[in-house]
Design a protein around this nucleic acid. Sequence first.
DNA 1: GGCTTCCGAACGACCGTTTGTTTGGAGAAC
DNA 2: GTTCTCCAAACAAACGGTCGTTCGGAAGCC
Lengths: 203, 203
Amino acid sequence: MAQTAEITRSPRRAEMVRAAARLFSERGYHGTSMQHLADALGLQRGSLYAHIGSKQELLFDVVDEGAERFLERGEKAVSMTALAVVRLRRLLVGHVETAIEHLDAATVFLNEWRYLAPDLAAIVQEKRDRYEGMVRKIVEDGIAAGEFRPDVEVRFAARLVLSAGNWTYAWFRPGGELGPTEIGERFAELLIRGLQPPGEARR
Amino acid sequence: MAQTAEITRSPRRAEMVRAAARLFSERGYHGTSMQHLADALGLQRGSLYAHIGSKQELLFDVVDEGAERFLERGEKAVSMTALAVVRLRRLLVGHVETAIEHLDAATVFLNEWRYLAPDLAAIVQEKRDRYEGMVRKIVEDGIAAGEFRPDVEVRFAARLVLSAGNWTYAWFRPGGELGPTEIGERFAELLIRGLQPPGEARR
DNA sequence: GGCTTCCGAACGACCGTTTGTTTGGAGAAC
DNA sequence: GTTCTCCAAACAAACGGTCGTTCGGAAGCC
């Protein structure tokens, strides 16, 4: 064979994954052709295959990289020795920071992962579940410790928290008045305290 | 010309828009071919063009239909004569209900609208802004009336509310234990009261 | 007959991928 | 210092297939 497409992680390959992350996030997976990617790197279409196995493999690399980053930050937050409120705040700030620092990969991770083939999707699904489990753990701890209302439904609250966090950077534009950290903090604040003033009777 | 692609809304055409909504939501706009659509309707590829002008036109119809439904429900909620808390609750319940009743169109409205050509995207953007404005209005009213904390940032809170609402049906599966109305209500509850018990000191 | 609806073939363009070959340079051998 | 060998990187061309769209004509129905 003329060229072997090994699984090696060369620096050139990393460049390609990065370029793919940007294109996939802008145009979507199916909206991005290998021609687009080749153009972005100043290459011929076919030359890409000296470094990658397939377009699908490229998608997996981008998505998995995104997942790993969230997991890393999340684990730090859950394993802290602190009040649930503090840990939740830390996780949310980390979440938003990670998402915005790697906006392309995060966008692809959220919007395009469903185009992964079943076996690859399963790997990512497991990591998503693990992450959601972290949020649930914190909420559970908070209820047990009396920091959160005893009547909040754990699974529901966790989903809501992630939902809000995941949509946040759909409207984030770099150069706005608020940085990632500020957004994360306000975000946690609002979720923990709610819109109502403290002590307000329930309506 | 043999076939005129008018702007008429025939019943057959509506069928096509509905089928397109389902396919676009499942496979994405670029991941759906006219062949897929023709198969779903038991037709030949070319036959579709007796009813529609282009694939892009089909996307616009699906997205715009989704937008209109949200606006209709939203307007009912803002224009109510009631406490801001009540109106917010009503808007959120309506939002989730609408989204789930028309899950396909809502999904396309959220995930695929960015593939609209600039002039069509602008029309949808205006409607999105209008909807966001409604949420902002309610939050503003709530602050003015003392129902919400005076220090909540209106634009930020509104975005957060919509963010959470928009991701909610990404994980909604029909036949689960909770229906759309229940989800909407719990959703509003959590956003208004927060995770913390009432009267809890701020940490 | 006129209308709507669809078929079936064709259009040029582009898709992701494979292939054989060329290129430029690094390292060893002389 | 010149040759020779080797290798990774990229090129250019082609593969079979699919893309969205057009169009002439054939049915079916009023």
